[in-house]
Design a protein around this nucleic acid. Sequence first.
RNA 1: GGCCCCAUCGUCUAGCGGUUAGGACACCGCCCUUUCACGGCGGUGACGGGGGUUCGAGUCCCCCUGGGGUCGCCA
Length: 460
Amino acid sequence: MVVTRFAPSPTGYLHIGGLRTALFNWLWARKNGGKFILRIEDTDLARNSEEATRAILEAFDWVGLDYDGDVAYQSKRFDIYKRYIDKLLKEGKAYYCYMTKEELDKLREEQIARGERPRYDRRYRDFDGEPPSGVEPVVRIKAPLEGNIVFEDGIKGTITIHADEVDDFIIARSDGTPTYNFVVAVDDALMGVTDVIRGDDHLYNTPKQIIVYRALGLRIPRFYHVPMILNEEGKKLSKRDGALDVMEYKRMGYLPEALLNFLVRLGWSHKDQEIFSLEEMKRLFDPHDINKAPSSYNLSKLDWLNSHYIKNKPNDELLPLLEEFGLYLSDHDRKEILLDALKERAKTLKELAEMAQGILEAPKEYEERALKKVTKGEWKEILERFVELLTAAQPHLPVDFHNLIEEVVREREIGFGKIGQPLRVALTGKLGGPDLADIMAVIGKDEVIRRVNHFIQLFG
RNA sequence: GGCCCCAUCGUCUAGCGGUUAGGACACCGCCCUUUCACGGCGGUGACGGGGGUUCGAGUCCCCCUGGGGUCGCCA
């Protein structure tokens, strides 16, 4: 049985790196028919916010990741942690430290001034005198004084940390609340977590957690430390980089399957394959195949993936998604033609909605470059003849409109472009876009006539 | 700065001692085409540097350089 977990702290929105970590854990659990736990790390009462938790859940919901059981909140498990802390205290594996924050800060300053690494000096480790009054003590765990802490990382291999790199870290604050490295170990053990896949910024936490596991006699899980995602300049991701919030991608018109596909390929690969459905990921993913080097993201690949998934999405699934971008097409009897023509061209849903709007609505303005190119030669007579033919006809399908254009082309012995370009600008105000016949079939005969006549009136 | 981790095209990556170093995105051509896209075809482009080991190193070892992480009563 494989049990994985995603354990964010509720300090803000779910960002892209967090989602990748969640995805890796989710995939590994699902692949093995195991369990995936969502646990909110909110032991620091001063910092957590319910809103942040909601944001994480919302993002999970959007991309379609689920979790087993209820969301676990560490803030509701304080009594459990308390029992384990008392146990360590009683067994002499942890101790009260009466050093104040001020004293600690001073010590650190002095150490830094002396060019030493700042660390607690273990002054209360074997203290048995009279504790100073008026100081609420913290609880510190006794870390080994010598030797190495060695563990096997599923991605990076054997990691060795010298004991003197790990000091007697705090497991309970002076207000009695437990701290991160302690509760993580306790919860992972209690919840039966077998595989911990997390960012490698946690690498140095692992020896600390191993100390807790050992002190408590708990089973140590397997660790996989995933290299960080860097920004496009190869630097560490920061809020200045813009869209880090997962939900921001939704607002920009990205499909969750594209985002997930993009993320899974950041650090993980399977031969030369680029496109992975969720099912394929589930079948093929293995944390051992994760790259050891950090990776930078480049959004143009996300664009490519997104356009791929848009192209392959059935129209009836696109419809409700497009409504979020103000495009209501459900009742439009030519929606299939419109969507088929547009999904080939759009990188995002937002773009698709805008392009549709640009066809459905008569142009408010005409691109200058387009006008210049098109209002030349016989354009006016050509368009007038087209309107004449159109008025007398009863076109419905794209092919009907196409035939009408062809008739003008034959009659006047001109190239298709001679009528196509002016017509296109008259209809949309632009030089580029979907097939003219499709556009006309979508807006219908009357609207075509209206737009062309208006165009002739304006510039003729 | 100490400690830990890492290093193949601009980017994501394949490679697991013998390859013309492969794929994808982006970019540039050509084709398709009424246009813009899509699509097809082709192209530019990488093993950071130096030492070893070996008949033979992108692949193994060491050093350098560069990058990242971490050093909280945050997680």
